[in-house]
Write a protein that binds this DNA or RNA. Sequence first.
DNA 1: TCCTTTTATGTAAGCTCTTACGCATTTCCG
DNA 2: CGGAAATGCGTAAGAGCTTACATAAAAGGA
Lengths: 175, 175
Amino acid sequence: MPDYVQERGAAAFGTRLRRLSERLDRDVQAIYRERAAAFEPRWFPIVTSLDAHGAQTVGDLADRIGVSHAAVSQLRAELVAEGLVQTRPDAADQRRFWIELTPSGKRTAARLKPLWDAIAQATSLLCSEAAPRFLAELERLERALDERPLKDRVDATFGARAKLRPAKGATHERT
Amino acid sequence: MPDYVQERGAAAFGTRLRRLSERLDRDVQAIYRERAAAFEPRWFPIVTSLDAHGAQTVGDLADRIGVSHAAVSQLRAELVAEGLVQTRPDAADQRRFWIELTPSGKRTAARLKPLWDAIAQATSLLCSEAAPRFLAELERLERALDERPLKDRVDATFGARAKLRPAKGATHERT
DNA sequence: TCCTTTTATGTAAGCTCTTACGCATTTCCG
DNA sequence: CGGAAATGCGTAAGAGCTTACATAAAAGGA
């Protein structure tokens, strides 16, 4: 483990992970744009999930793709406006409704599938070449944090709840 | 490389990377809050950089911590309001000014250094246990993408600029 | 020397999610 | 059975960055 983590702590990860994520999104967006695909990267998880698994509720989708229900709700509104998805009420529960692809949404998924496959392949190849263990290590990191969050780890070595208050008035000194 | 990438493509990374990043940030924020530290995770890169390397310009900081100058500008305003940093003009270039820690900023850094070290140690240990190659692989991924962006990789296999237009009118069908 | 191009940084607007709040429905349990 | 707690999802506001736009100063080159 390089000195980089010792120097930057958790911040060693934060910015870089965010930037890698954003960079990949930007590239995918550029690919869509260049090919006049009329599609947005952020629609991908929902559209492919509906395509693969059929109708789902807001909560199902939120769990499956790992975002808040509010984010799914907002995306749903957008996808309905685009004509890619529609909703229908649940027969047994009036709070709930089902989100599914429209015929147009299904056609869009079929149209873009070859491109998605190409992106998946390119990504897979990239990983094989440059970072064959990356996803495995990512998964192990996630699991380790599930079992014991960073905060608990710090509390154990630093002394839970030891205070680090600023001296009175010291933080609000003006230049 | 698991089937996860083949199934999700670039999206395999995006959400998970973002979530790991956010999760670490949230933990660090909870640590600060619990210890009445009066500090924000997003201040860390700037404050530690100034503490370690002395006065720097907006552009220097943007380069060093890897964000846009506008983000540094906004953070600087916030840190000035908190009394942690101050600015002074550059003698040779009127467009430029130097950002440095105030005495209070220096005291804050000294106060929090033990906590930062504990966080760094916990993070380092976490990586050693769960994902010893994670950062090395992250770095290699970044470098591979620097050399050849994902878009170029997809273009090479899929055929640059092959169009994937929706059929006329098909995407705007309303439910 | 003088004009064009580049550079430094501020501000505004946008993005894509989050949390907070709210309402209605359903489930649970005394 | 009935009230309290939990659940499902919409909307509003906020977060923390980005890109876009703008202005002024500096650098470069004819």
